[in-house]
Amino acid sequence: MVQLAPHLFNGLTLGLLFALIALGFTLIVGVMEVLNLAHGSLFALGAYIALTMIDPGWAQNTALGSFWLGLPIAARYAVALAFAPLLVALAGMLLERCLRPTYDKAPLYGLLLTFGAALVIEELIRLGWGTGERHLPVPGAINGAFFFGGLIFSKYKIFAALFSLAAIGAVWFFLERTPYGAIIKAGAHDSEMVRALGYDLARLRMFVFGFGAALAGLAGIVMVPIWGLRPHVGIDVVIPAFLIIVLGGVGSFWGAVVASILVGLAVGVTGAYAPAWSLMSMYLLLIAVVCYRSRGLFGRKSALER
């Protein structure tokens, strides 16, 4: 059991990171009933934009560029963490604009459109940032490792897990405790109601999509120092997000959080005994749960079943 503890901890951390990835995804599914297959690509886009913000190699000969590069990395990292997701939100809003013709059709079309968008974003990343593996620098304060109880912990993983926890809390607060959240949740169940209350459904959708995309971008910036940055990192990310949503039940906030942690634990514990198969465990977990409970752990009936 003593040997299991670090793996459980590892799994829990991983689960929190998965939850961060799944947050934006579940928001968009819940409100708009669109499965955004481009979520992973927006995740990658966020990380690449942050990379350029932190280390704009091409700008070092300009006055502004050299000033910027003269700032400590922690400052540049913080700025990137705050602003790169906003640029991703713009990309998300553009994508939402493209999705409009599909709203009155079967959910398949939204899925297909976002799959195409994933391909396009990935190719744009290759075009803009090259195809090789890149490295996102992080401030020294959260880099490296520390010892605790005879075990080694990565400082960055702890930072990322705490950051996820904070993000989950913030999103929950936004959805449950603010008037904007109430409107978004109304849209999730009844778009007629939103119209009747006098809100512009088109703008609500655009906002939600932008918000979801920004969360994807944010997750990207936080995650890639752990997972590495490649143009196709998106597809490695969207699949766990996908599985988590189905496992938790489409559109359920806490379902997604619980499912993320379950998946994290499954991957962490399998990693202890059969490292090569650790990623497989999440697929098997999903298949086991969905064969037994067709709508996942906390799912309700949804239009996506049509």
């Binding site: 599985l243 999903l286 298949i287 949804s302 079943e305």
Partner: peptide, 16 residues
């Protein structure tokens, strides 16, 4: 299974 749940399960099995 129906709709999106069908699609998702086929993805999961495909990944396996």
């Amino acid at each position: 299974r129906r709709g999106i749940y069908f699609a998702l399960l086929t993805i999961a099995f495909g990944q396996v």
